[in-house]
Write a protein that binds this DNA or RNA. Structure first.
Lengths: 347, 347
DNA sequence: TTGTAGGCGTTATCAT
DNA sequence: ATGATAACGCCTACAA
């Protein structure tokens, strides 16, 4: 009882405590922990027992301060609320884990100022490398990264013209391919429920993809109605309702991602509209949700797991500084499911 | 060009660089940054300009080492793959953000050994407090936490008998209430698709809840078929198929969470079964998905956002050490939707 | 293989 | 209001 109290009041064990307990020097303890191959087995045993007995854990601050590396990578994603980034991040972490590297995740709520804050926090914390989503951030942020010589990779996007190392996919191209199919099915009055484009290059590129497909077929940009809302099922629903309330409602509603599309679908059902007979709906991402809704969503499959894994490998290579790192463009794939059909004969 | 090169090769600016640039001592710079009210306005201006010019950012390791606090909380969740923890965590983070505290998230893949590793990592990194999910972890882990005097709160569960500060809900009670309703509707052959119970007290408690409800009505435990699978839509589907293939298929399939239920529902549809006419299905959590599937899920609403917010407040109080912290039990709520109906007249 | 000792960048105490 | 300077806990040449 009193021992218990004493113990909790006692200071946190430090390297020196372990050293004393084991009857060796701090240097030996340090070596035991960081490069066991260099100490004798007998010493190692002693030290590890002391570590165990004392419940010692290294002080990260001191460790980082002295060693200038942390075996920690950081990732800043816009949101944890929906599954868009979950699968890719999981794969990212799995790959890091295989290399004894810890992942710290922060989320920016789609706000560049918060993202910069999180980047600084992670860098200050000694992250060895960073995973970032998309290109949209201030030049000052890039400058900060460069100045600190911080390895980072941009993901969930791909712009060959950008200097940042990237492991991602071409949002515009992907959306353009999908939109082309929609147009091919006879749809002329199109609508797009997009994420907010400000500070979100992926969203902008997807919009651009739709417009490009339309231009290819001689459709005017005005034939596309765009509604911008934050990603959420509910917002998808209300945006869809708003679109269908127009005098000249669209025959196909493309959505910036599957979450919005799921909302749109639900709303269509609530309005007694048949999908795809009355109106077609498409998504983007191909998260699990896309297969669950009824009808299942025609969407763009993004290789999230590959992306996460490859991003991790790229960063690990960059951290080790051995290989030269290079960008990697992954392919997306159109997934045909029932939510997309031919345009209705006439309105 | 060469300036650029020089710059990137130049070391990271430190406090002393700023001090030199501003013509003051390091102590003054430190004060400027941490408690500006105590330095003269003129000095502050000078220092801030130097900070700006040099792109200075404090070294977290050194800071943590010297100040013994980090304004960083950690959270270890079992998985980021599905939305179960997303909403609560988002609320947790929002509350922390309002108190200038950063959140670092790690995930354990439902493995206690990894969880302990992550806990140690976060503690070593100087986390001021931790959010943990559920009670299942080794005594050694608790001992470690206690020894380091690390404030932590257990969430997503509630056991009045446990000594750990908890902000959560009673999984057993919640599931028992739901199961009682199912039984009340005449269902006698019940099945449960559960998450793996090993190392997961929430899953065990939910199973216990079903059994308790059955016992209340005099049903034998044998009347419940249990299938254990990791959380995923696909696993929900295959488990459901397996259950319905039995000689005496259940009339109601309860699921450990909404994700499994969504999978079960999809599978039912694929098998041409009508829900709830042929078979009833229920979920747990009330994530967005529950309202999207068709028919929408009868489920247990968990106040994720409240839980996250309150957990944050509790930890902040604990960190500040002013107020005495206490556990908080939140109420869940049964949500009636269409996936649950009366038992079919006869098999 | 093991020990000694200097240094990592900040904070905070004590003078001034 | 500001400056010197001693911790903080660990790593890593360098020595033995």
């Amino acid at each position: 009882m009193s021992a218990e109290t004493d113990r909790s009041k006692a200071g946190i064990p430090k390297l020196a405590d372990v050293a004393r307990q084991a009857g060796v020097s701090t240097a030996t303890v340090s070596r035991c922990l960081n490069d066991p191959s260099v100490v004798s087995e007998r010493t190692r045993q002693k030290v590890m027992k002391a570590v165990e007995r004392l419940g010692y854990a290294p002080n990260f601050g001191a460790q980082a301060l002295a060693a200038k590396r942390t075996n920690t990578f950081g990732a800043i994603i816009p949101t944890m609320e929906n599954a868009i980034f979950a699968r890719g991040l999981q794969a990212f972490q799995e790959e890091l884990g295989a290399h004894r590297t810890t992942l710290l995740v922060a989320s920016s709520s789609y706000r560049p100022d918060l993202e910069e804050e999180q980047i600084r926090a992670l860098v200050a914390r000694g992250a060895d490398a960073l995973l970032l989503i998309g290109y949209d951030r201030t030049e000052a942020t890039y400058e900060f990264l460069r100045q600190r010589n911080m390895p980072f990779v941009v993901s969930w996007a791909f712009d060959a013209g950008h200097s940042a190392t990237t492991v991602g996919f071409d949002n515009r191209q992907a959306m353009q391919t999908l939109a082309a199919q929609v147009i091919d099915l006879g749809h002329r009055r199109l609508a797009l429920i997009s994420a907010e484009r400000r500070d979100n290059d992926r969203a902008r590129e997807r919009v651009a993809g739709v417009l490009a497909a339309m231009a290819d077929t001689g459709l005017a940009p005005d034939d596309l109605t765009i509604v911008e809302v934050p990603y959420s099922i509910e917002n998808g629903s209300s945006a869809f309702a708003q679109l269908m309330a127009r005098a000249d409602p669209p025959t196909a509603v493309l959505c910036g991602n599957d979450v919005l599309a799921a909302g749109a679908l639900t709303q269509a059902k609530a309005m007694g509209l048949s999908v795809p007979d009355d109106v077609s709906i498409t998504g983007f991402d191909d998260i699990e949700l896309a297969q669950i809704v009824d009808p299942p969503l025609t969407t763009v499959h993004v290789p999230h797991r590959d992306m996460g894994r490859e991003a991790a490998r790229t960063l690990i290579a960059a951290r080790n500084g051995t290989e030269k790192v290079s960008s990697l463009k992954l392919q997306t794939q159109l997934v045909w499911r029932q939510s997309l059909g031919p345009a209705p004969k006439t309105g």
